[in-house]
Design a protein around this nucleic acid. Structure first.
Length: 114
DNA sequence: AAACTGACTAATA
DNA sequence: CTATTAGCCAGTT
């Protein structure tokens, strides 16, 4: 983790809630985390994430339903593989059907905290 | 401190 | 479908 982890913590908290076989977009995460408009920040948070963290970072993809390629040019393949194992299917273009796999936060989970 | 960068998104053309 | 523009804002240099 890194400086200013206040926001990171929220982002991670949301990502952690993404159930198996589901994905969420950066913008969505940002909004759910109360950081509406900070989509990029979400990307940063995940970027700084240690490899063996318990955060299912691979379930976070961009608004096109695609896995965001990064300069490093490696882990995004792994990401796709992980998602496919969870049941998320990718078309030949490497896109997932957000209509089907997009995670939606349960409306009444509000009291679930503690 | 100013400029640059970036796992982004959405609206237009 | 691609290209362009603009909005967003923290981390790095």
């Amino acid at each position: 983790m890194q400086p200013g982890s206040a926001n990171y913590a929220r982002i991670y908290a949301i990502v952690k809630r993404i159930p198996r076989g589901r994905v969420a977009t950066y913008g969505q995460i940002a909004t759910l985390a109360g950081l509406d408009g900070h989509a990029r920040q979400v990307g940063y948070a995940l970027h700084s994430l240690p490899d063996r963290s318990d955060i299912p970072w691979h379930r976070v993809i961009n608004a096109k339903g695609e896995i965001s390629p990064r300069s490093a040019g490696d882990s995004h393949e792994l990401q796709r593989m992980l998602l496919e194992e969870e049941g998320v299917e990718f078309s030949l273009d490497g896109r997932a059907d957000l209509k089907k796999f997009r995670w939606k936060r349960p409306a009444d989970y509000a009291d679930r905290r503690r």
